Computed example of a mutant assay.
Amino acid sequence: MTQPSLELAPERPRWDDHAVTLVASEPLGPHRRLVLAMPSLGARFRPGQFLNLSVPGHLLRRPLAPSRHEGAEVELIVTPFGPGTRDLVALPAGTRLQALAPLGNSFPLPAGAAALVSAGAGAAPLARLAEELLRAGRRVHVFHGAPSAEDRTLVRAVYERLGLEVQYFSEDGSLGRRGYPTEGLAELLAGGAEVTVYSVGPIALMRAAARLAIAHGRPGFVSLDVHMACGVGACLSCAVATTAGQKHACADGPVFEVREVVW
């Protein structure tokens, strides 16, 4: 089977620092939905691009990929797992922040159908991709994994608002099927579906999705969630091992073709 060719467009690091205002904050199960007003951001975030957001009391900013960008407002889905993100989701509406944006490269759009494989807040950047895919008239298959039914609120907010049918998988069986979203992907690919695979979530999930895409001769892309200190390629902290040598997630990614990553 001939593998369709899709190329990642390189991006020059940007130092555009925008003043933003937190205008809304609401819980989505174990996650939180934040809406930022960014009136000085003229460019539209492409799917997979991210911003580096300041958090009061913390030196380093937090890289986050929007799930939606409408006009001057940007929507983020944040999972509090460390001091920085916990403080971020606790901020009240009206808080003024700074954001470097837009940063990184983006997911290339396929000529045909797409399979989106996510877990947790990995649904956020893939929802932004799904929006563009639907606008381009592409068929979209969605497989989402979660520890439990708590993630149902998140997926309703990011995927189902687009009218997408989502195949759910959960570790305890309380949401959809018991198991992992890559099981759904495996069934789709085994049936001969000619799709481009996109995955965002824990490294084990992306590795499994990547290996399935490779085994079935399909193109695939992942967005690597590695620690980024600066977001523009200056500090070189977000190293990624690739077949072309060491690259950096913020400047060369965060989106990589699955065959490029040394898993």
Rank of each mutant, 00 (worst) to 15 (best):
F81E: 06
L116G: 00
R86K: 14
L22T: 09
R33T: 10
N105C: 10
S67H: 03
P27K: 14
V117T: 05
V89C: 07
L116W: 03
F50Y: 13
L64A: 07
L59T: 13
L103V: 01
P56V: 10
P83I: 05
L100T: 02
F107Y: 15
F81K: 09
G29I: 05
G29R: 10
S118I: 08
R32C: 08
R33P: 08
V20M: 13
E26N: 04
V78A: 03
F107C: 02
R44C: 15
R61I: 02
N52H: 15
P30A: 10
T21R: 15
R86M: 08
T21M: 15
G71D: 07
D17M: 10
R61Y: 02
L103A: 01
A124F: 08
A9H: 06
E75W: 02
L59N: 03
P92H: 05
R96C: 04
V78M: 04
R44N: 14
P108C: 10
R68P: 02
G94V: 10
L36G: 01
P108W: 05
V89K: 01
L34F: 12
L97F: 09
H69N: 12
Q49L: 04
R12K: 15
G48L: 02
L60I: 11
L91W: 11
G120C: 06
H18K: 09
R33M: 13
T79Q: 12
R46I: 05
G94I: 14
G82C: 09
P56I: 10
R12D: 15
S54Q: 03
P47Q: 06
P63E: 05
P83M: 08
G94C: 12
A9C: 13
A113H: 01
L116K: 00
A124H: 04
P13V: 08
H31A: 11
V35P: 00
E70P: 01
L64H: 02
D16F: 10
S106L: 03
A65V: 07
G29M: 08
L59F: 11
S25C: 12
V23W: 12
P66R: 03
P63V: 08
V89R: 03
R62C: 06
G122N: 13
P13H: 07
R33N: 11
